[in-house]
């Protein structure tokens, strides 16, 4: 049993999108703009050419935050969304009725409809693929050329992620909503 989380050294992101490709490949995510489990967000630099504020532009890789208090889990009428033994937020496609309430309740826009099963799908931290094979990294982490992502057990004080969170300042997205995300952005 573990309590998996992910730390993102997002300032290292170069927007190569290798993580998006690796995620789709590893987990068999459908093609198409709407069908994405993870993404690299970004904003344009402030100001007008040539007076651009380069420091204001940033890439922000993101995905399901695997919240400790996940709104998507609370609103699910059939408990199709559940926490697995590793505290990963998962969807049981046999129970999903596609009411789409979780898609509206998720503050992170992290859910989409898988057209093959016609149920809601999301990031699983590669639980069905890499973790099931005994590996200890996610596809997005493994492929990242600038080592943005660090995946690991938050309950293990000796894990790399625990060490990072102890030694680096970090923040969570939309923390004011009380969702207690397990994705941490390192500053």
């Amino acid at each position: 049993m573990a309590r998996y989380g992910m730390a993102l050294d997002y300032k290292n992101c170069i927007n190569c999108k290798a993580c998006e490709v690796a995620c789709k490949e590893e987990n068999g995510v459908e093609l198409g703009a709407e069908k994405h489990r993870i993404w690299v967000g970004g904003n344009n630099p402030d100001g007008q050419w040539p007076l651009l504020d380069i420091a204001s532009a940033a890439f922000m890789p993101s995905q399901c935050q695997h919240c400790e208090d996940a709104p998507c889990q609370e609103v699910c009428p059939t408990n199709a969304t559940y926490y697995d033994e590793n505290h990963v937020v998962r969807v049981d496609s046999d129970k999903c009725i596609l009411c789409s309430y979780c898609m509206n309740a998720c503050p992170y826009d992290a859910r989409y409809v898988d057209d093959r099963t016609m149920t809601v799908d999301k990031c699983t931290f590669c639980s069905d693929t890499r973790l099931a094979r005994g590996e200890t990294t996610t596809a997005c982490q493994n492929t990242c050329p600038t080592k943005v992502r660090t995946f690991g057990d938050l309950d293990d004080p000796n894990s790399e992620i625990s060490e990072l969170l102890r030694t680096r300042d970090h923040f969570s997205l939309k923390a004011h909503l009380g969702t207690n995300p397990k994705l941490f952005y390192l500053t």
């Binding site: 609370e74 609103v75 699910c76 009428p77 059939t78 596609l98």
Partner: peptide, 25 residues
């Protein structure tokens, strides 16, 4: 609803008591 029959089954077998949709339905 994508799967109304599944809804009838799992509304009873695994009710989501924190869900407003469960209570409403």
């Amino acid at each position: 609803i994508g799967h109304p029959v599944t809804m009838l089954i799992y509304n009873v077998l695994t009710p989501g008591l924190t869900s407003a949709i469960w209570w409403m339905g």
